[in-house]
């Protein structure tokens, strides 16, 4: 009887994310061959990903390209183009996250050859859970938290905040009106992730944006 159960049991030991991880590795290889450094921006809807990207577009100009996965319309992509960057809109069909396969197709459509191009920023779907499990092939994963969301979000969404390289706390201009405890948020993020780099910014007033852009620049040059 014991032998029987052993025979009937088939070992598999395979990561369910293996297909995504293969596409991510392919993206990472292609982008590094082209000398492009890649960012994956993750936050809840409305935290300010597109607004931060607009201000980055003004800093980097044609040195940066953007993949928009946040919403289905081209509205966010148009905002980025207006600010001075090439932007490609992924049609997510209402998906809750981007995966490496979708990014792989977007890369096929983009012009990655301009010699000045050195940075690719991917705006993920607004969601604090789903995107955390999907490596897109990025070099830097950035989590954005805006102060109106509350300072208790970090430990509520540990799968994301333990996986980021950079935490941006956005909408700092609203701090005087809210009881968001910046030190608490930073301490809790470090408790998941002692190496995380933190930037406090306001994409509205521009506070902290240049420091952040300079940091990104220094990460690859």
């Amino acid at each position: 009887m014991c032998d029987d159960t052993i025979e009937r049991k088939v070992d598999i030991t395979t990561s369910v994310m293996n297909k995504n991880d293969r596409f991510a590795a392919e993206n990472r290889k292609l982008l590094s061959e082209k000398g492009i450094y890649t960012l994956n921006l993750i936050s809840s809807p409305g935290a300010g990903k597109t607004t931060v990207l607009e201000s980055m577009a003004r800093f980097f100009g044609s040195r940066m390209a953007v993949i928009e996965g946040d919403v289905q319309t081209r509205r966010d992509a148009e905002r980025i183009e207006k600010a001075g960057c090439q932007a490609w809109q992924i049609e997510t069909g209402g998906a809750c996250h981007l995966d490496a396969h979708a990014v792989n197709h977007a890369l096929d459509h983009m012009d990655l050859d301009p010699s000045e191009l050195e940075l690719l920023a991917i705006e993920n779907v607004g969601n604090l859970i789903c995107p955390s499990g999907y490596d897109l092939g990025e070099d830097m994963r950035i989590g954005l938290l805006s102060v109106p969301e509350g300072d208790d979000k970090i430990l509520k969404y540990p799968s994301l905040f333990s996986s980021i390289n950079v935490l941006i706390i956005n909408k700092m201009d609203l701090i005087p009106h809210l009881d968001f405890d910046v030190d608490r948020a930073i301490e809790e993020c470090r408790s998941l992730n002692p190496d995380v780099q933190v930037f406090t910014v306001s994409a509205r007033t521009g506070e902290g944006i240049e420091e952040f852009c300079t940091f990104v620049e220094s990460s690859y040059s």
Partner: peptide
């Protein structure tokens, strides 16, 4: 202290299956 490093916790694997008799 909450100063710490995470060593594991992201796993998601299919380990094995058991065939019907």
């Amino acid at each position: 202290s909450i100063s710490r490093r995470i060593l594991s916790g992201r796993e998601f694997t299919v380990d094995s299956v058991e065939l019907e008799e």
